[in-house]
Amino acid sequence: MGLKTLAGAALIAALGAGAGAGPLRIATYSPDLSRDGPGLLLRDLTRTGKQADRQIAAAVQVIAETRPDILLLTDLDWDYDGRALEALVARLAEAGLDYPHRFAARPNSGMASGLDLNGDGRLNTADDAQGFGEFPGQGGIAILSRHPIGPVTDYSAYLWRDLPGNLMPDLPEDVAAIRRLSSAAHWDATVTVAGRPLHLLAMAATPPVFDGPEDLNGRRNHDELAFWLDRLPDAPFVLAGILNVDPADGDGRPQALARIMDHVTDPLPRSAGGAAARGGVNASHRGDPALDTGDWSDDRPPGNLRADYVLPRKGLKILGSGVFWPAEGPLAEAALTASAHRLVWVDLDWP
């Protein structure tokens, strides 16, 4: 239910011949390219000279340093004409990166539901959207690729109540009848590399916080990941995106992540910057700080956490992995300026 397959004209770039065979670098990155209103991201992406946006320049620098072949971007504002995405692609081209193939579709974030989803007696607030958002498309996701994309199966309209064994709390019937599972999107995007298809399972789960004792966001976060358990392709795949659950620390429910790990190889990507960030609340964490991908305040919970993942199917040969988080120097400053999240990459031996 709520399944849509997008191909052909739905792809923002036409299919063409892919680049050469492996190693194949796949990355996920949340570059904080979301703004407070529609059109503001496009404005900031096209500013030049003294008006140029420093944060955007830093995000472009991070991507240029890591040079992914396939890049899933999260927390990126979507617009109907794809102008912001095209402006970002142009900025990356100026930095020497060519992504002739890209895909984006309207996310659930900011999509009006017409109901009072959070029960506060008001309509049309950010919490009343299918996924938190002040306007349609705020905080969406997109795929950039050196290789042809398509088809893409979009599961974003799938209803939360239709997930077997779901943890959805008791909701009013009218809310349960329309409440989608995806806070942003769930896509199964086929990327053809050297003549062979690779499924990119793309998502951006809600943070398991910012709710009440009913733990709606914590339950939804768990179920957004559990969704894939019955939909893992019988073919090579990589699950990527913000999962927003740390296996050892934070407020999430890690049970679905543990079950996913039975089907994938966790390359345990590491960084020197994460390993060095041991102060404040991080000192009480149980997990390895080198694996963290989210750099939040050291003064209060949750501190730094592992939130972003690239997880290849078991059997795929992994050549390397990492989290772009230098401990010091200009590139460390660029990572800090760009986003609280760090880019995560995995190299596959492909084909």
Rank of each mutant, 00 (worst) to 15 (best):
P164F: 09
F227R: 05
L88M: 09
L201K: 05
V238C: 08
W160T: 14
V89P: 03
D211P: 02
A21S: 10
G273E: 07
T206E: 05
E173V: 13
E134W: 14
D288F: 06
G37L: 15
D295H: 11
Q130T: 00
L40W: 06
A226K: 09
I12K: 12
R67I: 10
D299G: 13
P172I: 13
A84V: 06
A95N: 03
R270I: 04
G287H: 09
A335W: 01
R161W: 14
A27T: 10
Q255K: 08
T5M: 15
L305V: 02
W78E: 05
P213R: 13
E86Q: 13
E86D: 15
W160C: 13
A340V: 13
R306I: 11
G16E: 03
I63N: 12
D347K: 00
S30F: 10
L73E: 08
A332N: 00
A104C: 12
D154N: 07
S109L: 07
R106P: 15
A58C: 08
F132A: 01
D246N: 07
A87E: 00
D32V: 04
L171N: 05
I56S: 00
W296V: 03
P254N: 11
T337Q: 14
L229R: 06
A95T: 04
V344D: 07
D81I: 01
D79E: 07
F227A: 01
T5G: 15
H101L: 07
T46K: 04
H147C: 02
A335N: 02
P207Q: 01
P312L: 12
P208V: 01
L24V: 10
G287L: 06
D174K: 15
G320Y: 08
A52Y: 00
L243N: 09
P68F: 03
R122M: 12
P164M: 03
D347H: 01
F324P: 02
G110K: 01
D174N: 15
L45I: 03
L144D: 12
A176Q: 11
S145W: 01
D308G: 12
M261Y: 11
G273P: 07
G195N: 02
V323R: 08
A332K: 00
A14H: 15
T48L: 00
P233I: 04
L45F: 03
L24S: 06
D211L: 00
E134I: 08
P151W: 14
G303F: 04
A240Q: 10
I63M: 15
A9I: 07
V281C: 04
L198V: 07
V264E: 10
G287M: 08
V89A: 09
T28Y: 04
L42P: 02
A338M: 03
Y158Q: 14
A177Q: 07
A129T: 13
F324R: 09
P38G: 12
L201N: 05
E224F: 09
L336E: 13
P169A: 06
G20A: 07
P31I: 03
E173M: 01
F135H: 13
G16R: 06
R231G: 05
A176I: 15
G137H: 09
S30N: 15
T48D: 00
R54Y: 00
D69G: 13
G137F: 07
R196T: 09
D127A: 14
A189D: 06
Y29R: 03
L42H: 02
P38K: 11
L11S: 08
G8W: 10
G96V: 12
P197A: 12
A272E: 14
L73P: 08
F237D: 10
T265H: 10
V193H: 01
R270N: 02
P269I: 11
R179T: 03
H263F: 14
